[in-house]
C-alpha cells in the first residue's frame, strides 16, 4: 500500500525551493467546463490531460482551472484559453487527443488551433 512517507520526502524537497508558480498577470488560463453537461460529454479526461501536459512540460505560467456551465452545452466539452493579453479562444467538443496540439501550438507557440474553435464548429 502506498504510504504517506513519500509525501514527507516531497515536502523535504520542496523546502527551500522558491515557489515560482505564480498566477500573475502574465499567466495563461485554461478553463475547463465541469458542470453536469461538461462531465457527461467527457470533460474529466480533458481536464486531466491538460493538468498532466502542463506538469510534464513544466509550464510555470499556465493555470488549469475549472468552471461551471458556460451555457453552450451542445458544444461540450468546452475549453476556454485566456492569454495574458486578455485574448480568449473557445475550443469545443474537445477530446484528450487534442490537448497536446492545443498546448504546443497555441499555449506555447501562440498559434490558435482554429480547426477546434467554436467559430469553425459553427461553420459546420
Amino acid at each position: 500500500m502506498k504510504s504517506l512517507d513519500e509525501l514527507k520526502a516531497i515536502r523535504d524537497r520542496m523546502k527551500g525551493q522558491v515557489d515560482i508558480r505564480e498566477e500573475g498577470s502574465d499567466a495563461t488560463r485554461v478553463v475547463v467546463g465541469m458542470a453536469t453537461c461538461g462531465i457527461a460529454a467527457g470533460a474529466r479526461p480533458v481536464l486531466t490531460a491538460f493538468s498532466n501536459a502542463v506538469q510534464e512540460r513544466d509550464l510555470q505560467n499556465v493555470a488549469v482551472v475549472q468552471t461551471g456551465c458556460i451555457g453552450l452545452c451542445m458544444y461540450e466539452p468546452i475549453v476556454e484559453v485566456y492569454k495574458a493579453d486578455g485574448e480568449k479562444t473557445t475550443y469545443v467538443k474537445v477530446k484528450p487527443e487534442m490537448v497536446e496540439e492545443i498546448i504546443d501550438q497555441h499555449i506555447i507557440k501562440g498559434n490558435v488551433v482554429t480547426k477546434y474553435t467554436i467559430e469553425t464548429a459553427k461553420l459546420g
Binding site: 500500500m1 513519500e6 509525501l7 516531497i10 515536502r11 520542496m14 508558480r21
Partner: peptide
Amino acid sequence: EFREILGSGDFANPEVSAFIMDFLRENHAE
C-alpha cells in the same frame, strides 16, 4: 493529513499532484 505533512495545501504542485494520482491508483488496485 496531506496538509499537515506538507505544511500547506499546495496539492496542485506537480510533485504533490503526481503523488496523489499514484496514491489513488495504487491503493484502488490493492
